[in-house]
Design a protein around this nucleic acid. Sequence first.
DNA 1: TACTAGTTTAGAATAATTATAAACTGGAAT
DNA 2: ATTCCAGTTTATAATTATTCTAAACTAGTA
Lengths: 137, 137
Amino acid sequence: MQQKKEIINRLRSSNLRPTKQRILIAKKLFDRKETFHFTAESLNKTVNKKMQRRISLATIYNTVEAFKKAGHIREILTNSSKSYYDTNIKSHHHFYDPDKKKLTDIDYQEVVLKKIPNPPKGKKIKDLEVVISLQKK
Amino acid sequence: MQQKKEIINRLRSSNLRPTKQRILIAKKLFDRKETFHFTAESLNKTVNKKMQRRISLATIYNTVEAFKKAGHIREILTNSSKSYYDTNIKSHHHFYDPDKKKLTDIDYQEVVLKKIPNPPKGKKIKDLEVVISLQKK
DNA sequence: TACTAGTTTAGAATAATTATAAACTGGAAT
DNA sequence: ATTCCAGTTTATAATTATTCTAAACTAGTA
């Protein structure tokens, strides 16, 4: 179990004031073994399940955006209408099942690239993501 | 220049009645040398520029969906809030510039994969897409 | 020429997200 | 401790992208 102090430090170190709401959301997101895929909507449900005082949806959005900017989570490429996020910020890849709208991590070493193109002038590569879309056999 | 007949045949062969609107949209999309990236909104602008009779936005959406289902266009993975489409239906990859919200094709042979994972049971791979996100150097 | 299923259309409805502005709070200064 | 205020949260309104609805239209067959 991640200590509250660790979470507070993580927040402080990225210039995020450690409010009750942020600490609670950070716990839900980061205090787990497996990496976690979520949308604003699903996080809202998770966080507000059996809670006395609820965190507003606006705060969920604000916090997700703040955590994304700070690099604690990353947004995943899909062609769903919702934004999907991942607590695994290391470069890795996904299966996407459009039927179930489910993402699954692909272990980094499961994809090996032999050749990638040079970025256009004045630009560098920020991220490289492989998405393998699935369908029924 | 692609002949009107060709376009009509293409529509018919995918069970799409060749209406005035679909023919006009198909011309805009397919009667060009380079492949074309667009959103519903941008296509709407393109199609309705200096037109006497305009095509409604609903028809743009309907037609894009119909063309996508028929496999004449494909949807591109991004994390933009809009859906991006590509007239290049061959498997290929993209640079994405989040600043300009611009996609650029990457030639298929510019990306070489050495190893990809097996799909989960009961599923097969529908599509594999590499997106390289860019940032300023 | 008439008919009908498929299509188009304007506008309403919905879904996801962002903006607004008033109330609240963490933490520095007193 | 108390005051203070910038940063944060909140409910709600606004916006954006997309889908739905149902009436009017049309391609193509009879």
